[in-house]
Design a protein around this nucleic acid. Structure first.
Lengths: 130, 130, 130, 130
DNA sequence: GTGGTCTAGACCACC
DNA sequence: GTGGTCTAGACCACA
C-alpha cells in the first residue's frame, strides 16, 4: 500500500490518512470505482487503530470522495461527485490567505509565491499523466 | 483593535491570534518597531485569557516576528529578522501540496489554481500599498 | 525516576527538567525511541504541576530532542535529528564567552579553564560508555 | 562608553551590564582603581533606568569586582579581591556541565568542544594583551 | 506597569 | 489512556 504515516507529526493520523487518499486520487493511483483496503486490512498494514481508519473513511465519504458499500467496502466515487463548488473555493481561498500572509511577511515576492504554488500543483499533475 | 477571534472555530484561539498578527504585518497595519497591546489589554479586549494571548505572542517571538521587551511589551521586528529561508520554503511547499491535491481531485484546473493563489497574495499586497 | 528538581533554585522548574532530560540523553540513560514518563506521571512523581512538565516537554520537542506522539507520550528522537548546526555553535560560543570572561577576571589560567571544560565533558562521556 | 545593551535579549539588562563590566575587566579595558561612570551618567548614556544600573553595580560589589565609595562612585577592585575560589570553580563546573551535555547530545566531539571553549577564552585573552 | 512562572482544574481531540 | 487548549488566580522579576 502506498500510504505512509508519520507518527511523529502533529497532524492527526486520520488526517494524514485522508490526505493520502486524496493524494492517491489526485495522482490517479486511485481511480473511480476502485476499492480501498478494508478498515481492518489498512489498520493492520499501518499498525494503527481500526477506529482511526474508519474515521478517515467516514470523513472522506462525507466530503464526497468515497462511497461506503456494505459488501465492497470503501469505493472511490466518480469525479463529478466531488467537483469544486463555491463553498470549497471560498474555504480554499481563506486557507491560502494565511499562507500568503506569512510568505508576504517573510519577503517572498509575487513571482516566487506563484512559483511555489505552481510547483505544488504541477508535481502532482505530472505524476497523474504517468 | 483590528484583531477578531471566532470562538466557534475549531482552530485554537492562540493560532487565530498568531495569524491575525501576521496578517497585520503583511498588510503593514503593523510596522516594525510598533508595539502590540499588552497581553492583559488584548486579553481583556477579546475576552480571552491572558495566558492564551501570551502563548500567541511567545510563539510569534520564537518565529522571529516579534520581540518581547521586558517593559514595553511585544514589538514588531524588522522585516529582515524573519526573512524566508530554505526551511520555511520547504515547509510551505509541503503544506501547499496538500491543498493542491484536493484542488486537483476536485477538478480545479491549473489556471484556476494559480488564480486563487494569486488572488490570495494580491489581495494582501494591495492593502499593503495603501 | 532519575530526574530531580531543586525547588529552591532560581532557575525555573521547567528549565531544570529540560536540562535533566538532556543530561539523560547525553549519558545515554535515555536512548532514542525510549519513552519518557507521561506528563501526569512525572508531575505526580516530582510533585509539580502537569503544565510545568508539559512546558518542558514541548520545549524539548521544539528543540528536536523529543517527539510527542499522541498516544505514547514523549519519545526520545534519533541523534541525527538534533545534530549541531552553525546556529547552535554560534550560540554556544557566545554563552561560553561570558563564562570565560569571568574566569579570566578571576585569574583562571588558560590551562585551568580548559581543564574545567574538559572535566565537564569527560565526566558525561565516561558515564555514557558504561 | 564601551557598554552596549540589547533591549531585545531575554537576559535582564542588569545582567548584561554586569557581564559588560566583567568583560571590560577581563580585557583590561577596566584596570584596578579605575572609576566607572556614575549611575546617573551610565543610565543616561544607555537610556535605561537608574535603578537598573545601581542594581548591576551592587551585584558586582557583592561579587568583589567593585568597591562603592561615597565620593568616587564605583571603583574596580584589585584582582586578588575576586580571585577564583573553590565555590566559584564548583559553580563554574556545574554551569559548564549543562552546556557540555547539550553539546554531547548534538554530536559535538571532545576536540570540537575544547576548541570552542578555547576560542572563547583566547579571544578575550588576545584583546587583553593589546 | 510589563511579561514569566507556577498552580489548579476543566474540557476536548486523538487513539 | 495520552497530550492540547483554555480558564483562573497567584506570585515574582524586571524596569
Amino acid at each position: 500500500m502506498f500510504i505512509e504515516i508519520d507518527m511523529k507529526s502533529d497532524v492527526p493520523i486520520y488526517e494524514q490518512l485522508k490526505q493520502s487518499v486524496i493524494l492517491g486520487i489526485a495522482q490517479k493511483q486511485l481511480a473511480p470505482g476502485e476499492e480501498l483496503p478494508s478498515v481492518r486490512q489498512l489498520a493492520a498494514d499501518l499498525s494503527v487503530n481500526m477506529h482511526t481508519v474508519a474515521k478517515a473513511y467516514t470523513h472522506l465519504k462525507d466530503k464526497g470522495f468515497l462511497s461506503i458499500h456494505r459488501n465492497r467496502g470503501a469505493v472511490v466515487n466518480d469525479y463529478r461527485d466531488f467537483a469544486a463548488d463555491k463553498e470549497y473555493l471560498a474555504a480554499l481561498t481563506h486557507a491560502l490567505r494565511a499562507f500568503a500572509a506569512e510568505a508576504l511577511c517573510r519577503g517572498v515576492k509575487a513571482g516566487e509565491w506563484l512559483g511555489v504554488c505552481n510547483d505544488a500543483y504541477e508535481e502532482l499533475s505530472k505524476k497523474r499523466r504517468m
